[in-house]
Design a binder for these strands. Structure first.
Lengths: 333, 333
DNA sequence: CTGAAAGCGCTTACAG
DNA sequence: CTGAAAGCGCTTACAG
């Protein structure tokens, strides 16, 4: 029993029923019964064995040809934005011989017996208790496009939000606009804050004032864009250009403008953020800041795999470059 | 060895290494080596054992708590349309305790050792050789929204294309339009044909002629809509309304109309098909025929699971009802 | 409620 | 290149 008394670290060697049995002072048969939810085990014994199984991170052995490795990707929604990221993970996974299981966040705690190599979440890291269990099981967690500052237990991949916010604003400034408003995501979201500060930085560098009421942060959805857009356009003086921190909100703002009888881009220029498929199919086609969503998914998956293999990672947070895509929704003032 | 000499049917009992060894006339150890790709096996022996493993549908035993069941969903693209279907499978899967592995069609033949319960594909069934292997392994295959008539080996789930095509056309007729054009998907696609015949049926029932050149079938994508829309609008007399057999194409047609200086819906009414998120976020908001994509995904998954459990299925092809959603892109003639 | 013992399916070091 | 034998991790019928 070389593993006993090694201090707080549980042995690197996979625990077997024998390990647990020794630790619990019961027979292997009893541990097996607990594992198989048989009824003929005393409650106290069952509880003890369960606790030990958990503590040792017991996972059933794999027999025969190794099961194909999987990575779990958790999402809430599955709109164009998430889909593009997921596509990136699937393709990178295929290249690495790993398949991607997509689950909803509501699915409850990740099943540690499922043999996942890693967990990738979008926007938010798992709840602390979940995360602790994952860490204990040695399962790396990667968050894509974190809404909030990632904690110490996760790695994250996102876009260059600040630079993207700057380039969108600089584009509108270079078009001669001065009354430029910011229509952002949730006020507390880190991605929103970075985009907004990019906007402010560009305005400040150009010595153009941000007028009162010109910064609103209703959220990232279409409806948020309709609402926030209406608020901005009701201002006096009204903006001649809006930088929306996501494409859906940009389309919502366009809708709000049309509802007021304004033409886009003749009366109002709108720039989005994301470059999801809606940006290309809307009319006018949307000028927007492209996020490398596909690549972000790929990087997330490869990073997760590298972590799972015990490799060192250069940086716990990587930001991939955004790029301004000029289309039809922005015009000279 | 009760399984030997049972005729052509391989025994229902899961094959073990011993089964294969007996059939091949070698030892269990040798079969194990073949399975583990060890080098010390004669090529001829290896080939024989491989063949027998395949024939008996050998799968490695599962130990410990049963592995979580998975269903594989195969896609080519992952746009709003596919995402909505996939979301339906994920949610139905969560309810059934089954997780969904999303793969690209380019991923090669499905790994039979991966323990999948079923395969769900979008639009097209697997290639014949693949399908035969799947059937031999007892793996059910369900095709969602088949582009072509499904073969005898698969089950399929789709929308009521014909009825949907009729209701879109009737809507435009009821608005007073008579010069109504059809902008469809690939000419050979069954879904396109059904939608087109729904269109024709409605026109005929209303005694309204389909003018020459008024039926085009460039494809289901945005670019197809731009191209087909331009062709239709160049006709003389030009249509006052276009029924596009998918939302993306409808948006493409709107773009083509604007490029000609036409206003939508004042100068041209456009009705789409699908009701993906782009329909709601476009401006004008798109009148369209809603496909129950989410439900189609759910039905596909539940059907797949039922088949996998050996249950009987009522119908090998089910069509779920579509519904006209009137928004802003259609107006009285 | 517990565990000794038999057994299953598989792998592997080793002798031939 | 092959297989007898030992062994591993697990399960289960059964005795206590």
């Amino acid at each position: 029993m070389p593993d006993i008394g090694r201090g707080d670290a549980v042995s690197r060697r996979r625990a077997t029923l024998a390990t647990i049995a020794a630790a619990a002072g019961v027979s292997v048969a009893t541990v097996s019964k607990v594992l198989n939810d048989r009824s003929d085990v005393a409650p106290a014994t069952r509880a003890l064995v369960r606790a030990l199984l958990h503590e040792h991170g017991y996972v059933p052995p794999r027999r025969g040809p190794a099961q194909p490795a999987t990575v779990e990707v958790r999402v809430d929604e599955l709109s164009a934005y998430e889909s593009e990221i997921i596509k990136g993970t699937i393709e990178a996974g295929a290249a690495a011989g790993v398949s991607v299981v997509v689950t909803k966040r509501t699915a409850g705690p990740l099943d540690l017996t499922a043999g996942r190599r890693a967990l990738i979440t979008l926007f938010e890291e798992p709840a602390p208790a979940q995360l602790a269990a994952l860490t204990r099981a040695g399962l790396p967690v990667v968050v894509v496009d974190p809404l909030y500052l990632p904690g110490a237990l996760v790695t994250s991949v996102g876009p260059t939000n600040f630079a993207g916010g700057m380039s969108a604003t600089q584009h509108l400034l270079s078009l001669g606009h001065r009354r430029i408003a910011y229509l952002g995501g949730p006020a507390t979201a880190a991605s929103n804050q970075a985009r907004m500060h990019g906007y402010r930085a560009a305005m400040e560098a150009a010595d153009v004032p941000v007028l009162p009421g010109y910064v609103v942060t209703p959220g990232y959805c279409y409806r948020d864009g309709v609402r926030g857009g209406a608020a901005l356009l009701g201002l006096s003086p009204a903006p001649t250009a809006v930088f929306a921190a996501c494409d859906e909100a940009a389309l919502g703002a366009i809708h709000a403008a049309r509802a007021r009888g304004l033409r886009v881009p003749e009366d109002l220029s709108v720039v989005g953020f994301d470059d999801t498929e809606v940006a290309f199919m809307s009319s006018p086609r949307l000028t927007t800041v492209r996020q490398p969503l596909h690549e972000m998914g790929g990087v997330a998956l490869r990073t997760a795999l590298r972590l799972s293999a015990g490799e060192e990672i250069d940086s716990r947070h990587v930001e991939l470059a955004t790029e301004l895509v000029v289309r039809e929704s922005s015009l000279a003032a």
